[in-house]
């Protein structure tokens, strides 16, 4: 298979989240925040390259919005090139990973960062459509690729 983007730019990974003393105190409650969501999806692999979405700046901490009180999370992602045919697949991977890793009380929106992809609206529409997402996950080939993307490597 020919690669669409042979030599993408790579960005530095941000350092691990430091553990604060209050996070180690059993009595204090830690709320969900954007960094926590980012940590969940930063390690997703790009379908084309052996690189993570973080290294390619497809997902960024600043593009994640968490509203704990209303139980909503919004994730914006940026495809590496505007014609990237993998955009939907990446969006699906993010959705599936969050589906598996977040408590069910949250409603998650995954959308393309406005203005960064040629067919932004149709991709957004597909990702927002519950039925279509569910149907996509029934597709054995598709779920295989998604599982490969979100498989966390055990070190």
């Amino acid at each position: 298979m020919e690669l669409e983007n042979i030599n993408p730019s790579i960005y530095k990974k941000i350092s691990e989240r430091p553990i604060l003393p209050e996070e180690e105190d059993n009595e204090i409650e830690d709320e969900f925040d954007s960094r926590e969501i980012f940590d969940l999806i930063r390690s997703i692999n790009d379908p084309e390259h052996p690189l993570t979405l973080e290294e390619l700046h497809v997902v960024e901490d600043s593009l994640i919005d968490v509203d704990n009180r209303n139980n909503t999370i919004k994730v914006l992602y940026t495809p590496t090139i505007p014609h990237c045919s993998m955009a939907t697949l990446i969006g699906l991977s993010i959705r599936v990973k969050l589906l598996r890793c977040l408590p069910p009380r949250f409603k998650v929106h995954v959308e393309i960062n406005p203005g960064t992809h040629a067919s932004e609206h149709s991709v957004n529409k597909q990702l927002a459509d519950k039925e279509r997402v569910a149907a996509a996950l029934e597709n054995t080939h598709l779920i295989k690729v998604i599982n490969q993307c979100i498989a966390n490597k055990i070190e």
């Binding site: 295989k144 979100i150 966390n152 055990i154």
Partner: peptide
């Protein structure tokens, strides 16, 4: 999250 993912991926297609 890590534990749950490991169990979900137990027999998942890859």
């Amino acid at each position: 999250v890590e534990a749950r993912l490991s169990w979900i991926m137990l027999d998942a297609l890859t």
